[in-house]
Design a protein around this nucleic acid. Structure first.
Lengths: 333, 333
DNA sequence: TTGTATGCGTTATCAC
DNA sequence: GTGATAACGCATACAA
């Protein structure tokens, strides 16, 4: 059974119907799971005929008839993700499990994003079942997309993950006694939405605690640039200083820049990273970081997907997203 | 112009035809660029009508009529890519430029891959224009896919990039005087096709040069595990030893494990990484690595895409792929 | 419980 | 040059 046909054209529902001795409509119904209202005999005949012919529903025909496709567009923000592979791998698997296919769209820099909008065009031409927003969809785009009737998945970010990460970083530094805080962006061409949220959270924390507003630096991973950036920080803030970094690579760059400058870590310079990259734990000193549990974080989206498209929801309920993030203490704070 | 309609249903070619006062066929022809054989006047009327209505061709209808969709499936192998974001970002942009959309498929472990095959099913149901193989397509899958009439992009790997990386690593270590070689895989659940090619190349190099066959170790990024793995290596090979690592994270883990064990780098243990991760250059000592130029490497695929689907080819011709990879000398060899 | 008829939006073939 | 018209493969309201 399930023998692939040698002939060129793939089997259609007509072929299945003919072989099973029923009508196309019956085939369609049975194969879409409306199996209750048919003779067990009929169902079986249809199924084995389909298997025999290696029949696979054409998404094109299906999409045309239904008005929307089996595609889910995942919008990746214009930022640098250490865990991107993990995230889209898990998402892809969740999406596939619900019978959809994932198409990935990369946002561009806000300033560079042309109009008419690439994302909107993609959605108009693909008519996807839904859009999963990893943080790359602007307010304006969101409105436009929803006007097309397409579901945008984290509908409203009840909870801004990046804001939370920034708060965790600032709170940790503060709890370790640092009162002069700095936010270190990854120096890059990107104008990064994640970095914006995280640094805004640090600023907010300082306000709430009555600390001086944190300064911002852009730190390249490359050694000379990192040293330069760190020197600037010390000129402006003296020491000790606590630096919340965009990610663990920035954190590592800062830590090693400090060492080369003869500064003590965490005595003069305390450093906390984000995203919990494994590499931060392999070096000495191990960097303190905000570790995110990718599967747990993505489970939230999986839940929304299932809810929206009627698939099987994760049995273990939906945990609060805060729980997916925690401080991983290292030797740099 | 280009005002988005407030009403629910998106405009179809019928609407455009009506507004332009022509037939659907004319709309289709004009919008597909067959503009030569029509009155300039007609062409203009059609175009402005389309713009006026915010008309966007439905990929579903198009796919149905043409027998294949405007999708390109990118198959990501079951491995850990430091540069995955860069690679699929560039690919996505190239693919979009040719008028296609990218759907990403992640291969699973060879042993875990179920039959019937996920990839094949995806292709049968999506009927994509083509498949871009980043190294995740098995020989068997390739045959099956091509039997469906779908183009698989690097048709035949004239040139195995990973083999080349392994050769570069081994050659470099040898040129620095190391004769006892080791290949360090990333310790992971993955049975990684990239690692297999690279380590095979190292073995091959040793044979060709009359060196002892290299041993294989699996190194976790985490410190204790890395130390354990390194100890095993030294027991089996003594020192000095040259270690070719799967990527720069493994290299960093090995370097710091060596330091913690009181070994000198590169005196006792020489280390070379791969993929040229920025982080490897931020730490001290900077790791020697095989740096890949992602845009250059992907340009090869872009060229093939353009050739296959008739888009604009890169003007600067197609450079040999070897040129995209080079030794970036650090302080660990 | 099963079949008939129709519509979905596009492209292609062939008349005019 | 331009316009009818027929596929393309599927889903579904409705008829039987």
């Amino acid at each position: 059974m399930s023998r692939q046909p040698e002939n060129r054209k793939p089997a259609t529902s007509v072929d299945v119907a003919r072989l099973a001795g029923v009508s196309r409509a019956t085939v369609s119904h049975v194969l879409n799971g409306q199996t209750e209202k048919f003779n067990a005999d009929t169902v079986e005949r249809v199924r084995s005929a389909a298997a025999e012919l290696g029949y696979v529903r054409s998404t094109a025909g299906r999409a045309l008839a239904m008005g929307r496709s089996d595609l889910v567009v995942v919008v990746v923000p214009y930022t640098t993700f250490i865990r991107l592979q993990d995230v889209i791998e898990v998402l892809s698997s969740d999406i596939a499990e619900l019978g959809f296919s994932m198409v990935v769209h990369f946002s561009m820099s806000r300033t560079k994003e042309e109009t008419p909008n690439r994302l909107l065009h993609l959605i108009e031409t693909l008519r996807p079942a839904g859009v999963v927003d990893l943080g790359g969809v602007s307010r304006r785009e969101l409105d436009l997309i929803e006007k097309t009737g397409c579901a945008v998945l984290p509908r409203k970010l009840h909870f801004d993950v990046n804001h939370w990460i920034g708060i965790l970083q600032a709170r940790h530094l503060h709890s370790r006694g640092y009162t002069e805080l700095v936010y270190a962006f990854l120096s890059d061409v990107r104008d990064d939405p994640y970095g914006r949220s995280r640094s805004a959270a640090v600023t907010e924390f300082c306000e709430a605690e009555g600390l001086t507003a944190p300064i911002h630096v852009h730190v390249p991973i490359e050694p000379e640039g990192a040293e330069e950036a760190l020197k600037t920080v010390l000129e402006q803030r003296g020491r000790p200083v606590g630096i919340a970094c965009f990610n663990d690579e920035v954190a590592v760059a800062v830590v090693f820049a400090a060492k080369r400058l003869g500064l003590s870590v965490p005595g003069d310079v305390a450093v906390i990273g984000a995203e919990g990259a494994e590499i931060g734990q392999a070096v000495s000193p191990r960097v303190t970081t905000v570790k995110g549990d990718v599967p747990a974080a993505v489970r939230h989206i999986r839940y929304l997907l299932a809810q929206t498209f009627g698939g099987p929801a994760p049995s273990d309920g939906i945990p609060p997203q805060e729980d997916a993030y925690s401080i991983l203490p290292g030797e740099t704070t």
